[in-house]
Design a protein around this nucleic acid. Structure first.
Length: 641
RNA sequence: GCCGAUGUGGCUCAGAGGUAGAGCAGCUCACUCGUAAUGAGCAGGUCGUCGGUUCGAUUCCGACCAUCGGCUCCA
């Protein structure tokens, strides 16, 4: 007999060789039915895995993310099986589970079409009903290689050859289909029901653009149909929130063939931008930042000095002026360096916090452009902090606090990643280590969890990235803090220390919004276009009921305008219902209906966005107090879109 | 940049080898109206661009441009 410790801490004695499935059955019938896999000493295993010694065992069901992951992975095999049945000779790439589904990469002469997806899905459903079991077989390296070589599965062969010497190589078979796979898998295909193939895409073999592009089919699967429907509904909701769609509908910005990736901001988009920038200036002023503006175009020599010429050239735009080479800035820092050098700095001046809302241009690949989220010119809410080495941690903490303050105001969740030295970089190992350690210490002192991205740092220093989560659960890098020992060196920046000698300052590059354009996109999707009052392009719209109320409406508008409340009057000869509908469509936070009753008593009938009531009557003063409080406190709208 | 799809009036979309239609928006007129669409009329497009096939193409073919979904990259 052996002892197994279950998730709840209880210990059970079972025969040696008992499988996880049998263990589940011994615990309860329900569990046996729901079980799809098991976890032995924290390692995922098949239900058929025999327990040979004392271990901690957990039964995995489809209620958990891990269970779904197993299901999704197994479904990707099922899809590959269907594809092989329908399109014999298709070569297999890889087919993992991903966040909300799975994919499989195929290499086929045949170019898959959306109609094929329907056929494949149908075949998958047919195969699922066949109730094939997923059978694991451990094989030797030679056996595995022989098998896949015989089938001409060269990608699988490449994978096997890349496996470490001591790796256990396993293959899984369901029906007529066998795939190289570490597992685990669900016991049988009949569990797979709520499936949908989603889309087709090209994907490079092993993610390397030098390799052949394979055809990737994305699909998803859930434990039950209701979950799948819910997921599809959320995708629809996300489409409704798409900032490209809302940006057009709300007249915020536009993109044109004449300037791919170079957005045009409309008056309403500018109001939003300016509100974000005003808030930014205010918060930065409070924290001792100064603001500067450096040129867009600067001489080649500067970019050579900064290292951009060597490390960032592919992303830059160039031009010639009077026969000399110039570059359009892709970053603001070199300009900031020049600024620092305009006078002799003392240690008493440090830390020097210098902000710049700087317009940068970067050549992005045409296929990467995406609304305002990925553009070719954007405004970074940049700042460079020049400081003494002893001030590093405190300054880092200051920036982290600032980022947190900002994101909280918008109600964004975020997570943090730390990126270390990339291959193409400059500087000494010691500097990089010191910089990385400083970032790490600041994060730890702040008590923030973080993920490490090896080799993902900027070419001049390691960085902390802040990733904001949007309504589609996509994450976007917004804020970033980069610690830099290189630029001060390259530009020979100095300060005079207490000892009267020149010393080298350390520098931080950082952004909070990241890019104003991207941040606007995120906000648009996050709020579904219903911006909180402090950001709303139009905060109040006044609707006179008939022409004779226009005078009162205009007088009110003038009053609000004086108070810096963004107001519009809808004087069209339309019914109130029509105007209300339009105001709601435009997601204006406050709509004021004014007729005889209001005009006589200096009151307004207030209707808030998304709250379908007739609106409460209040005096104009009371309304002013209400909206000013709303604006001042940057209140989030509570109503849904 | 790469793979695939798409590209028709401001917006959403229909259409067919013979030289284009709808709804919304816009404009005009009537209605002066109390919380999500009043009615009628008018106007608006060299069907992404450039070539080719054809008696004839916006419709078929090719190239290019842009957009969309991914890959790669990144604020």
């Amino acid at each position: 007999m052996i002892q197994v410790t279950l998730k709840d801490g209880s210990i059970r004695e079972v025969e040696q060789g008992t499988t996880i499935a049998e263990l589940a059955a011994a615990i309860s019938r329900g569990l046996a039915k729901a079980a799809v896999a098991g976890k032995v000493n924290d390692k995922l295993k098949d239900l058929s895995y025999p327990l040979m010694e004392n271990a901690a065992v957990e039964i995995i069901t489809l209620d958990s993310e891990e269970g779904l992951e197993v299901l999704r992975h197994s479904t990707s095999h099922l899809m590959a099986q269907a594809v092989e049945n329908l399109f014999p000779g298709t070569k297999l790439g890889i087919g993992p589970a991903i966040a909300k589904g799975f994919y499989y990469d195929f290499d086929s002469e045949h170019v898959f079409t959306p109609e094929d997806l329907e056929k494949i899905e149908k075949e998958m459903k047919r195969l699922a009903k066949e109730n094939y079991t997923y059978q694991r077989k451990e094989v030797s390296r030679t056996e595995a290689l022989d098998y896949f070589k015989r089938l001409g599965e060269n990608y699988k062969v490449e994978l096997i050859e890349g496996l470490p010497e001591d790796a256990t190589i396993s293959m899984y078979t369901q029906g007529n289909f066998t795939d190289l796979c570490a597992g685990p898998h669900i016991p049988s295909t009949s569990i797979i029901k709520a499936i949908k193939l989603m889309s087709l895409a090209g994907a490079y073999w092993r993610g390397n653009e030098k390799n052949k592009m394979l055809q990737r089919i994305y699909g998803t699967v859930f434990a039950k149909a209701a979950d799948l429907e819910d997921y599809l509904y959320k995708l629809e909701e996300a489409k409704r929130r798409d900032h490209r769609k809302l940006g057009l509908e709300l007249d915020l910005f536009s993109l044109h063939d004449e300037g791919p990736g170079f957005p045009f901001f409309h008056p309403k988009g500018m109001v939003l931008r300016n509100a974000l920038e005003d808030f930014w200036r205010q918060e930065h002023r409070k924290r001792g930042y100064q603001e500067i503006k450096t040129p867009i175009i600067l001489n080649r020599s500067l970019w050579e000095q900064s290292g951009h010429w060597d490390h960032y050239k592919e992303n830059m735009y160039f031009t010639k002026i009077d026969d000399q080479d110039f570059a359009v800035k892709p970053m603001n820092c070199p300009g900031g360096m020049i600024m620092y050098r305009t006078k002799l700095r003392s240690y008493r001046d440090l830390p020097l916090r210098v902000g710049e809302l700087g317009l940068v241009h970067r050549h992005e690949l045409s296929g990467a452009l995406h609304g305002l989220l990925r553009v070719r010119n954007f405004t970074q809410d940049d700042a460079h902090i020049f400081m003494l080495p002893s001030q590093i941690k405190e300054e880092l903490l200051g920036v982290i606090e600032l980022v947190d303050t900002f994101y909280k105001v918008f109600g964004f969740e975020y997570h943090v990643e730390l990126s270390t030295r990339p291959e193409d970089s400059m500087g000494s190992d010691e500097d990089w280590e010191a910089a990385t350690r400083a970032l790490q210490e600041a994060l730890e002192e702040r008590g923030l969890d973080y993920k490490i991205n090896e080799g993902d740092g900027a070419f001049y220093g390691p960085k902390i990235d802040f990733h904001v989560k949007d309504c589609l659960d996509r994450t976007w890098q917004c804020g970033t803090i980069q610690l830099d020992f290189q630029m001060p060196e390259k530009f020979d920046l100095t300060y005079v220390g207490e000892d009267g000698q020149k010393h080298r300052p350390v520098m931080i590059h950082r952004v909070i919004y990241g890019s104003i354009e991207r941040f606007i996109a995120l906000l648009t999707e996050h709020y579904a276009g219903a911006f909180p009052t402090w950001l709303a392009p139009v905060q109040v719209r006044i609707l006179p009921i008939s022409e004779r109320h226009q005078g009162y409406a205009k007088a009110l508008a003038a009053r609000f305008n004086e108070l810096d409340i963004r107001v519009e009057t809808d004087e069209r000869k339309e019914k109130v219902g029509y105007k209300i509908r339009e105001a709601q469509t435009e997601k204006i936070p406050y709509t004021l209906v004014v007729g005889d009753q209001e005009a006589e008593s200096d009151t307004v009938a207030v209707r808030r966005y998304g709250q379908g009531d007739a609106g409460e009557k209040m005096t104009v003063d009371a309304f002013v107090n209400l909206i000013q409080d709303d604006i001042k406190n940057k209140k989030l709208l509570t109503a849904l879109a």
